[in-house]
Nucleic acid binder design. Structure first.
Lengths: 278, 278
DNA sequence: CTTGACTCTGACACCGTGTCAGACTGTATA
DNA sequence: TATACAGTCTGACACGGTGTCAGAGTCAAG
């Protein structure tokens, strides 16, 4: 028969937790003074308490510990719980290791530049979307701006005519497998409501189709003139490399905002590229 | 200018979190409708939000993220925070890996025995303690019981005489480096209040000294007759091996309770052995 | 004007643990 | 025996990041 403080010292656990375990019916004192409410424990309860602590340290929640100590549990179920927990912990380890690698990459970058990097690359999922688009060859990179304006206007006009509603900012997909300044294979696209009944487009140039999504898309936002978009591309490239990914599809340039000369807001562009584990 | 739902979709973060970041002054909407309280965001806020998300994913708390985004932060401080976080994550990884190994060991054990193992081994810290003791050679293991009774009585008697207060259950330390049944080098000890002024013991046999603590002590509780204590030793040995530790000091047998023939309670004995990483 | 989709605020919940306040209780010393 | 101090009780709040709900108000399309 031990007072709670003695028992707590013996088992190296706080009195608070003994109260809590009592409350959860995990470990009840062998005796409670009827008048004072004082709890009394026995050394013979140590094995159970140690088991509780051990299971808890293994990563089980107290509720799970409670189940595991329940006599009703078949060995089969017990194995199941352990296997499940093992899988969880494995996943956790992996997650932390990825985090550690990213942290290290970031730290190297900080040491070089002596400040927070300019661009923030994030990994996101992108859902499949219905688009109307024009895909064509553009002879030179310098014509992109013009061509986009023209084509987006066309697309926008047609969307209106066809009674479709647009569902997001316009973007371009560059299908060239490598960087090039000539003969760009570009698809200028405009998302439309997925629910829109598929109406075959009229003109030869305009096509409408579903663009597949991607589970892992590296994304970076460029806030400023299009002239300096190459910085964003560079940041994206470095990130992919430094984080051991691999480019697994065409780049997208999403024109989130065109900017406004009036109120002096700059354009905002998002770059996306699907990636996979290297 | 985006409504909160659009911004939330763009950044792949819940509206709840945008509210929360607003509240924490991490990311305020560029505009809030004075009458309705509706929040409006701009795509140009995406970079900041992405940075918030990225830092959060790196394991920083929102408060730390807030500091990191604060312009007042010197590059020096920033590096410091990253290094610290890196150390934390490294430690976390290690902890999870240890947990994983223990989980695997436990799973193997379950698959063999098809039930929860009998003994629960836990790792604990043990503080240094002042003891009065008799160390002597005991010819045969069969005499241990007798000898302990005699010696503990002597010790207890002397403690009373000397005006000391005893501070825990009696125990024996076995100094033999290997298991043996003959010529046991045993120290029978009784903890006393550390604060007791050191009084030199009278008889030749009784000594009083401080017993060093241990940062890592593997411990197991045996609930039952002393006859079967070897099962507990075996469990302790297997645990040490299966968890890649190494025995780094002498075993202790702590007599938590002697049991009582009257009310039929069994003795409770704790085994401890200091361990280090193998 | 109605309807349905958005948005707002404020609250509660999760979980394991520390801590605090205020009331009792147990023990030891003056 | 009176008093002081140490131990214990209960109940509450806090942490942090996020989900969810209720109830009230708002927006946009028909």
């Amino acid at each position: 028969m031990l007072k709670i403080s003695d028992f707590s010292k013996l088992a190296q656990i706080s009195i608070r937790m003994l109260h809590y375990y009592d409350q959860l019916d995990l470990l009840k004192p062998i005796q409670i003074d009827r008048f004072t409410g004082y709890r009394y424990y026995s050394v013979s309860q140590l094995p159970r308490l140690n088991r509780i602590i051990a299971l808890k340290d293994l990563g089980f929640s107290l509720e799970q510990v409670s189940k595991l100590l329940d006599d009703e549990l078949t060995p089969e179920q017990m194995r199941g719980m352990f296997k499940l927990k093992k899988a969880e912990v494995e996943q956790q380890v992996e997650l932390e290791q990825v985090r550690l690698r990213r942290l290290e990459a970031r730290l190297r970058q900080i040491e070089q530049e002596d400040s927070m990097p300019e661009y923030e690359v994030v990994l996101k999922r992108v859902a499949a979307q219905q688009i109307v688009a024009i895909r064509e060859n553009i002879p030179s990179i310098s014509e992109i701006g013009q061509q986009c304006q023209v084509r987006f206007n066309e697309l926008f006009g047609w969307i209106g005519q066809a009674g479709l509603t647009h569902a997001g900012p316009p973007f371009v997909i560059y299908y060239n497998p490598e960087y090039t300044e000539k003969n760009l294979d570009a698809e200028m696209a405009m998302p439309v409501e997925a629910s829109s009944k598929v109406k075959p487009p009229q003109g030869a140039a305009i096509i409408m189709h579903e663009l597949a999504g991607s589970e892992a898309m590296a994304s970076v936002v460029h806030n400023g003139s299009y002239e300096t978009i190459n910085l964003a591309y560079a940041a994206l490239g470095h990130w992919v490399e430094n984080n051991s990914y691999q480019i697994s599809g065409p780049f997208r340039e999403i024109y989130l905002s065109m900017g406004d000369a009036q109120d002096g807001t700059l354009p905002v562009t998002e770059l996306q590229v699907p990636v996979g584990k290297a």
